[in-house]
C-alpha cells in the first residue's frame, strides 16, 4: 500500500528532529523513494516536512539574492522572521545566489514567500503598463 505523503513527511520531520547525521538520513530517504518509485514527489514531501517542522517551531527559509550577502544581512533577515513568526524557536537561513533576480532579496519558506527583488518589481511594472496600453 502506498503511504500517504503527509504521513511520510511527518515521519521524516520527526527523524530530522532526533538525528544528527543528515547524510545517512538522506541516503535512507533516497533509497526509499527509489524503491517506491516516488522520486518525483521529493519536492512536495520536503515542503511538507518544512511545514511540519515549522509547526514544531523550526522555521526554515531560503534567502535568494543576485550576489553573495554578508552575515549581517542574514542576521537582519533572521530578526525580521523572528518578529513575523514569534512562535519560531529556531530560524534556519540558507543563502543562495541567483542572477535572475537582478537585485534585492527574496525569502522563500515552505509555502510563503517575501519577494523584495528587482525582478519582481519589474514584472509588476510590466504588467501595469501593459494594462494601460489597452
Amino acid at each position: 500500500m502506498k503511504v500517504p505523503r503527509h504521513i511520510l513527511a511527518q515521519t521524516i520531520a520527526e527523524r530530522t528532529l532526533h538525528i544528527s547525521d543528515s547524510a545517512l538520513l538522506a541516503r535512507e530517504i533516497a533509497a526509499y523513494l527509489l524503491t517506491e518509485r516516488r522520486t518525483a514527489e521529493l519536492e512536495s514531501i520536503l515542503r511538507d516536512v518544512m511545514q511540519y517542522r515549522a509547526s514544531q517551531g523550526i522555521l526554515e527559509a531560503e534567502l535568494v539574492s543576485a550576489y553573495d550577502v554578508d552575515q549581517h544581512v542574514i542576521e537582519e533577515v533572521r530578526q525580521l522572521l523572528r518578529r513575523a513568526y514569534p512562535k519560531a524557536k529556531t530560524v534556519h537561513i540558507s543563502p543562495r545566489t541567483d542572477a535572475s533576480v537582478i537585485g534585492g532579496l527574496r525569502v522563500d519558506m515552505a509555502n510563503e514567500q517575501l519577494d523584495m527583488t528587482l525582478a519582481a518589481k519589474l514584472s509588476t511594472l510590466k504588467r501595469l503598463t501593459a494594462i494601460d496600453k489597452e
Partner: peptide, 22 residues
C-alpha cells in the same frame, strides 16, 4: 540535535538518488 537543515537534506537526497540510480 536540531541542526539538520532541509535545504541540505534535499541536496543530499538528490545526490543519493543519482548515485543509487546507477
Amino acid at each position: 540535535m536540531k541542526d539538520i537543515s532541509i535545504q541540505e537534506l534535499s541536496e543530499d537526497i538528490r545526490a543519493a538518488i543519482t548515485e543509487l540510480k546507477k
